[in-house]
Simulated assay, not measured.
Amino acid sequence: MRAKPGFGDKLFELANAGMTKSGASDRFILAREDGDPDILWNVEVFKSDEAKGNYENSPLADKLRDEIINLLAEPPMRIPVHPYAALPINES
C-alpha cells in the first residue's frame, strides 16, 4: 500500500491495529520500504478461510478499511497466495 505523502506512520498504525485486534491471523509481517516510508507491505497468514472471511466482513475491518483507504495515494495491490511452509514462533 502506498500512503499519501507523509501518512506512512498513520497507515502503519492502522494496519498494525487491525492485525493485532482481529485475532484472525496466525502471524503477520508489516514492512516499510527503506527508501520510501510511505510504502507498507503486509503479509498475513490467516488461521483459516473462515477466520479470514469473518474478519473481512466484521465491523472492525469495515472501520479500518475506510480509514486506510482515505490514507492511500493509489488503490492497494492485493495478491492472494497460500503459504506452503510457515513455522510457528517458539514463545518459550
Results as ranks from 00 to 15, higher is better:
H82V: 15
D49P: 04
A17H: 10
L14Q: 01
K21T: 11
D9M: 12
L71I: 07
A15C: 14
S58Y: 08
A61M: 08
D38E: 10
A61T: 03
F12P: 00
N90F: 15
D62C: 05
Y55D: 07
A24Y: 05
R2Y: 13
P59Q: 05
G8C: 03
M77F: 02
K10Y: 03
A51R: 01
M1E: 08
E13H: 09
E91K: 12
P5H: 00
R32T: 15
R27N: 10
A17N: 13
K10D: 10
I39C: 13
A3I: 05
L64D: 08
D62K: 14
N90I: 15
K4Y: 10
A85K: 14
K63E: 15
D9P: 02
N42G: 07
A85V: 13
P75Q: 08
L11D: 04
G53Y: 02
L64T: 02
G23F: 02
A86W: 05
N90Y: 15
D66T: 12
I68N: 02
T20M: 07
R2T: 15
S92A: 13
E91H: 11
I89V: 15
S92W: 09
P59E: 11
P76Q: 09
K47G: 02
R32S: 15
N54D: 09
L64A: 06
A73S: 14
N16R: 13
E67F: 03
R65C: 10
E33W: 12
P75C: 04
K4Q: 15
Y55G: 00
I39R: 15
W41C: 13
E67N: 03
N70Y: 00
A61F: 08
L11Y: 06
N57F: 00
W41A: 14
I39S: 12
P37V: 05
F28A: 10
D38F: 09
E74I: 02
D49S: 06
L11G: 04
G53S: 02
I69T: 10
N54T: 08
K10V: 12
Y55V: 02
R65W: 11
A3F: 10
D66W: 00
K63G: 01
P76C: 01
S25I: 00
M1K: 04
F28Q: 04
L30F: 07
L11A: 05
I69C: 05
G6E: 14
E67Q: 13
E13G: 04
P80N: 06
